[in-house]
Design a protein around this nucleic acid. Structure first.
Lengths: 241, 241
DNA sequence: ATTCCTCCCAATGTATACGTAGAATCGTTT
DNA sequence: AAACGATTCTACGTATACATTGGGAGGAAT
């Protein structure tokens, strides 16, 4: 770390102590983008971002390159770094890929012996979803649902699948932050998830796949309705045009 | 120089002459890695790579970061940039993900109207595979096969799927460069591909999916045999896993 | 007023400088 | 001789300097 004399720009919290500045910038920006704290479509200059994060342009650029590779950011030559907009098309495409990966993952998980504690973790996530539904906590429901799907992928021994899926999971989550306020209460999701877990416990890949596929198909059409109802959702709030 | 048939360009701009040094380094290194020109597991210092490409460390690092994000390279803190090794596990995982994505893609393509010229392109790739098989040109067969699968994804309107799949296609291609010399003549692949194209032409998603799924399953088991026969294939001087 | 041209500036791409940390080497001690 | 310690040296992370280039503002001409 660079702690010679003028330590004017020290970050007191610094959870990730040993992490490099590049890594810190990457995590920070990623978090802000995924949480919509940085608005989709927003344009910011490298210099501004660097200043915002209290570092020079070098580590910032490296972080941005990583984010660009993930599709979370689009460097626009002379205008700045653009936070990836969320188009209607993106939402559909992302969910299609995610569904495909997730169905595969569910099948893989069900095809291998699963420990009780793993089942318990899944059940716990479903319980959290139920609880959130009871108290009309749609945000809490979203979090629990995200946790459930994360778990599915984590239980899957295919690291490549896991890694790629997480990327799409994150993107889907970001998109969902836009759609959540407009969704009706997602009642069937929970019973479907429970049925999938049951199939996993029984070690029944085909059933798990079918249930999950059906669930995904249902969600897809629900998404279509939402998109149709609120097409303005995806208007770039702070886009250049 | 080293121009393989993988003309997978990114969105920004064609990587030709006006490209930035970062872009040039990225393309060049990527090509070399995918063609096994840079051996899996090889360690090279940033300085050496920069010198090799005739540029300073800055653009080189940016290229390396992109490659690292794709999993083609692993920067090892004090030892250098490591070209991603190819483990047996990697091969299995990559093919599993790719199969999953490809089956989805085939279904999507078959579900939408396909123009004659698109069918023709697919047929042409299959013809090239046939011709290569006739003349025992296993390398030519690999290229044509790669082209066929690329086409499948390109005909798929889902850009996210396309992009992610291309990544896995490239990785799988790299792994296949190792296994190609050991493969028996892949006779059934061609008839399967032809059947898939036929299903696509008829607009029959389910059949296309089933055929392709069966094909992928068969290939997967063939791969298993190869791996079992030649486990030494995957041990260049890497020491991870 | 609109359009085109020119000039200026600022944002980026790239090179370089610099401090730090980790590894290897060499010397010392038991 | 082996183990431990100090020292040097090297590779990397980060900051900064610099050149280029594209874009926009302003002016002139129609």
């Amino acid at each position: 770390m660079n702690t010679l004399d003028t330590d004017a720009y020290m970050q007191p919290e610094a959870a990730g102590e040993g992490a490099s500045r590049t890594e810190a910038a990457y995590q920070e920006l990623r978090q802000r983008i995924l949480s919509l704290d940085l608005a989709p479509g927003a344009l910011t200059l490298e210099t501004e971002l660097a200043a915002m994060l209290g570092m020079s342009r070098t580590p910032l650029r490296e972080a941005v390159i990583r984010l660009a590779q993930e599709g979370l950011v689009i460097p626009v030559p002379r205008r700045g770094i653009q936070v990836a907009p969320i188009t209607e098309r993106d939402v559909r495409e992302i969910n299609q890929v995610l569904a495909c990966l997730e169905i595969e993952a569910v099948m893989i998980v069900a095809a291998r012996p699963v420990r009780d504690e793993e089942i318990a973790a899944l059940d716990s996530a479903i319980a959290a979803m139920d609880a959130a539904l009871e108290s009309d906590d749609i945000d809490g429901w979203g979090k629990a649902d995200f946790r459930f799907h994360s778990l599915i992928f984590e239980l899957c021994p295919n690291r490549h699948l896991n890694q790629t899926a997480r990327l799409y999971l994150d993107k889907a989550h970001r998109a969902r932050l836009l759609t959540l306020p407009y969704r009706r209460r997602p009642v069937y999701s929970n019973s479907n998830h429970a049925a999938v877990v049951e199939a996993i416990r029984r070690g029944d890949p085909e059933t798990a796949r079918d249930i999950h596929a059906a669930h995904k198909r249902r969600w897809s059409s629900e998404l279509d309705q939402i998109i149709e109802l609120y097409p303005s959702m995806f208007e770039p709030g702070s886009s250049l045009d």
